[in-house]
């Protein structure tokens, strides 16, 4: 369990982290999103005790990182942005060192073997880290964070530099780990956060601007669900039919994808579902509906919306 209370970090007069509070429960995977320089890595460095906060409190399994750093750090596995590897060591030597450094009590051989299997580095254990590719180094970094089976895993962009197959493997590993660990994961790859995380925290300019599930965020940012429809038929007539439906608020005509096919974005009144009505009216006139779908915001759109300031500017509303 991680609890962050009113965390602030100033670099001189610059506020890198500005009054952030959030919680991550055991068995939860929390996604940490934000544009470059938002304060993600700084926050993670504070959580792990690498940096000290200007003010605020961080509790790792109810232990204050500042008051009892040694016990708090026993519960943390940390993969920083740049994996902290000693390039002159072999993978085996390095993991041995981390094992000793973390004063790990688990049986050494089997524990390290298991970690190497999990992070798929078993085949490079005898190689010097300097000679490994970026993807392997990243995975050795991940393996390092797993040594001692810590309750809390803090992973700063864990899939950077991996190929697509490895990314999928690491994601499923993180999902598996998330079942009995607390995982905080930062990423700039939004589908990754969407695929892996139970909850998303978005920060921008050091401020926390959203903390919710991806679905809820999408919903709260576009409460009036919109429909995208493509209908074959004379555009003027089709538009007239659509505006004639009483539950429809507005109809925007979009760029026509082909001759005699028109595309519309329809905003419906809150709580209404106009899909059946559209179907009936178009069927009556024999105008085939080629496409009809809800346009829920993707995480990408949410992210852009939140970080470019639309969210507060429009009081959480839609367009």
């Amino acid at each position: 369990m991680i609890e962050v209370k009113n965390l602030c970090k100033n670099y001189g007069s610059k506020k890198a982290v500005d009054n952030i509070s959030f919680r991550a429960e055991n068995g939860e995977i929390l996604g940490f999103l934000g544009p470059n320089g938002a304060g993600k890595s700084t926050t993670m460095n504070i959580l792990t005790g690498y940096l000290s906060a200007t003010s605020g409190q961080v509790l790792i399994n109810d232990i204050d990182v500042l008051e009892d750093p040694v016990s708090a750090k026993k519960n943390i596995g940390y993969l920083p942005e740049i994996p902290p590897l000693y390039l002159d060591m072999t993978v085996n030597e390095y993991l041995d060192f981390v094992y000793d450094l973390k004063k790990c009590k688990l049986p050494k051989r089997s524990h390290l073997g298991e970690i190497c299997e999990l992070s798929r580095i078993a085949d490079v254990r005898k190689r010097v880290i300097r000679n490994l590719s970026k993807g392997y180094r990243q995975r050795v970094g991940l393996a390092q964070s797993l040594v001692g089976n810590p309750k809390v895993l803090i992973l700063d962009e864990p899939t950077v530099g991996l190929d697509p197959k490895q990314i999928i493997e690491i994601r499923s590993l993180i999902k598996k780990l998330g079942k009995n660990h607390t995982v905080i994961l930062s990423s700039h790859i939004l589908p990754e956060v969407q695929a892996v995380c139970d909850r998303v925290v978005v920060i921008n300019n050091g401020k926390l601007i959203a903390d919710d599930t991806a679905e809820n965020l999408s919903h709260s940012l576009s409460p009036d669900s919109k429909l995208l429809v493509q209908i074959e038929g004379p555009s003027k007539e089709v538009k007239d039919i659509l505006t004639g439906i009483s539950d429809i608020d507005r109809v925007y005509e979009l760029k026509s994808p082909a001759k005699n096919i028109s595309e519309y974005e329809i905003s419906q009144k809150e709580g209404c579902d106009v899909r059946r009505e559209i179907f009936r009216r178009m069927a009556a006139r024999n105008y085939p509906i080629l496409l009809m779908k809800n346009t829920e915001l993707s995480l990408e759109e949410i992210f852009l919306k939140l970080t470019t300031g639309d969210f507060y500017g429009e009081n959480g509303g839609g367009e």
Binding site: N45, T48, G49, Y50, P69, V70, S71, K73, K74, I76, Y78, P80, I82, P84, L85, Y86, L87, V98, L101, K102, K103, Q144
Partner: peptide
């Protein structure tokens, strides 16, 4: 320089 201090400083060592 190699950022390995992130490992030592975040491990349970004083």
């Amino acid at each position: 320089r190699q950022k390995t201090d992130q490992l030592t400083l975040t491990s349970p060592v004083s």
